[in-house]
Design a protein around this nucleic acid. Structure first.
Lengths: 259, 259
DNA sequence: ACAAAAGTGTTCGCCTTACACCCATGG
DNA sequence: CCATGGGTGTAAGGCGAACACTTTTGT
């Protein structure tokens, strides 16, 4: 096949079908809420990092990290890569959220965005180099974002809040070991309401999602709390296309792609 | 911009990024299960229509209805159209399921498929013209399908079964009015297990999702059952990006696209 | 000793389940 | 009048919400 032929075919394809494919990610982390005087209070809330656009549709507006999908890269891998390149974060949780493809969503050409959502640990989030083009925003009070990104974040927030109640994704915000109070803080920050410590303890212990380490956390102002660890053996209760159903199909390593 | 320039740019785009975008749909309907002698028993089960591929990757294998995404057509509209063109069905429910884009899923070029799932009413499903290239299959025992379509159907089935328990999509299988026994049949067929009629009645009545019509269904072998109607005023309890959250954002007519 | 957080016990009300029972109609 | 599905009553078990209470540490 000559170059001319290939080029012609491409023109046809691109004119009649073929919108441009992009991948974006909504990243959530828990960070201490700021006081007026830039001191940090102990209370944690949901934040997300945004990047400032440097090119033209919506130049200078804040937007979700993302980029075009390279032909040779898996969807989830592209999400993880663009996320790392723009914010230098590594997610502990990454799942496809939704695909946005309405015709008018990007001025000019048709763009279809496969959007992922990610959770990162608090300590890692603290190390992000913020600058003129990357900044954290409180998830509940965002400025006006580029494209339809406000709606996307809103949907991702809803997804996070509903999913935290029936799955164990809250662990993704925490380190290897944690106290039940810390785990409760995560739930309280995500759902932003207070939770009865006694009932929370019993619910979590009964779920089998955590196991005692035997260790205690030292250095607290008062009685030292037990440290727990995530229980890898308990069932996921959720199957986005690779979090497989119990039976049949052989699981594949680490991606959520079905072939 | 000259034609040459445009063509060159296109070649670049298509070589480095831009996979091809497709839309497919998993369609579910309830149909009476077949007996060995081709008589129909009264029991209903889940079926889905598949089309036989006529072109080359996986030629002659069964596959989900679908097609390439035209540049000027909304995602959901493309799903509804390809579904109508291949099976002449009109869905009463249509929702985005997931986007499958793994590199090896289609031999040759990279294809990213935005997959929808749909429900159609039983009486309409009965009128589908089956032929050599369109046929109904029981959802639980499919042949080997083209591409990754077996996995896609498996995921759609899981989605249907979990969603039927907390939302009112079961109504989408039924007509304008229905008896509680018919509604229960839908649940039983989807979940394939029997449900206590007494408890089911109370649960549904308490949910507020249905209202009595005052009419009764005549012509049954025994006591005539009440007819109910779907209650449009009760809350959706579910928000794929347009099934909006209670508050803030103005609802948009009928599509699930966020702009 | 006292404040404050860790952790335990107990009660209440709601919802689901199981199952016994009555009701209405066609044959 | 009786078989069959429509429809009602009721009691037991599970689970979350509320809240009183005990335990253990640092200061």
């Amino acid at each position: 096949m000559s170059t001319a032929q290939r080029t012609t075919q491409c023109t046809t394809l691109s004119a009649t079908l073929s919108a441009t494919l992009a991948v974006s990610t909504v990243i959530f982390a828990l960070r201490p809420v700021e006081k007026h005087d830039d001191a940090a209070s102990g209370v944690m809330t949901l934040w997300l990092p945004l990047v400032r656009r440097t090119s033209d549709p919506h130049r200078n507006q804040w937007a979700l990290p993302g980029g075009w999908l390279p032909n040779h890269e898996e969807l989830a891998a592209a999400a993880a890569r663009t996320l790392r390149e723009t914010t230098s974060l590594t997610p502990t949780y990454l799942e496809q959220l939704y695909t946005f493809g309405a015709i008018g969503r990007s001025p000019g050409r048709r763009v279809v965005s496969v959007v992922y959502w990610a959770l990162v640990k608090s300590d890692e989030a603290a190390q992000v180099a913020v600058g003129d083009n990357v900044r954290w925003f409180p998830a509940d009070s965002l400025p006006q974002l580029a494209f339809d990104h406000n709606r996307i974040v809103e949907y991702a927030l809803w997804r996070l809040r509903t999913k935290v109640e029936y799955s164990r994704i809250a662990h993704s915000f925490l380190g290897e070991t944690f106290t039940l109070a810390q785990l409760r803080e995560v739930h309280e920050a995500v759902l932003h309401r207070s939770i009865d410590p006694a009932n929370f303890r019993r619910r979590v212990e009964a779920s089998g999602d955590v196991v005692e380490t035997g260790e205690f956390l030292a250095g607290t102002r008062h009685r030292p709390p037990r440290l727990y660890r995530f229980n890898d053996a308990s069932p996921p209760a959720t199957p986005p296309p690779s979090g497989r159903r119990p039976s049949d199909i052989p699981a594949r390593p680490h991606s959520e792609e079905a072939p």
